[in-house]
Amino acid sequence: MEVKEFEIWWKIPFKHSAGLHATKFFEGLKDGKILGVRCERCGRVLVPPRAFCERCHVETNDWVEVSDEGVVETLTVTYMKFTGLPDPPYAIGVVKLDGADTGMLCFLGGVDLSEWRKVHETFKPGTRVKAVWKEEREGKITDILYFEPLK
């Protein structure tokens, strides 16, 4: 006997509170600014900002603006299609912005993504990159379209 299968979809709406720290960060993005917080204990600038430093376990309220330029720490180009995820290829990387002490997850772009070895050569760790901003910003992480190599 063939075992019966039931197809089920989940669609549940949420209204997630971003909290004050993330809100301030997203308001900054609208103005084309990237904000972080400095931990008064370890002195590290955390980007994206968060309400406390997990290493020191203290609150963080010392706001600083960091650059929209930085260096690539690592990257990958996805070529496989996953259900519910965008059509490939797309490049994701971690960029440490000038003035920040933590890497930030971001898209990489502005280059042909068809050959992964070329993309990795272009964005190899240590490569300087700059944010390419959306024209009409809405206060979301995707206001930064991607980072591209600094010309």
Binding site: F14, H16, A18, A22, F26, P48, T76, T78, M80, F82, L85, P86, Y90, I92, M104, L105, C106, F107, K140, I141, T142
Partner: peptide, 14 residues
């Protein structure tokens, strides 16, 4: 998290 990481579609293999 739905703010910083999920919108970037970071799959486990990625």
């Amino acid at each position: 998290d739905p703010f910083f990481h999920r919108p970037l579609n970071l799959s486990l293999p990625a």
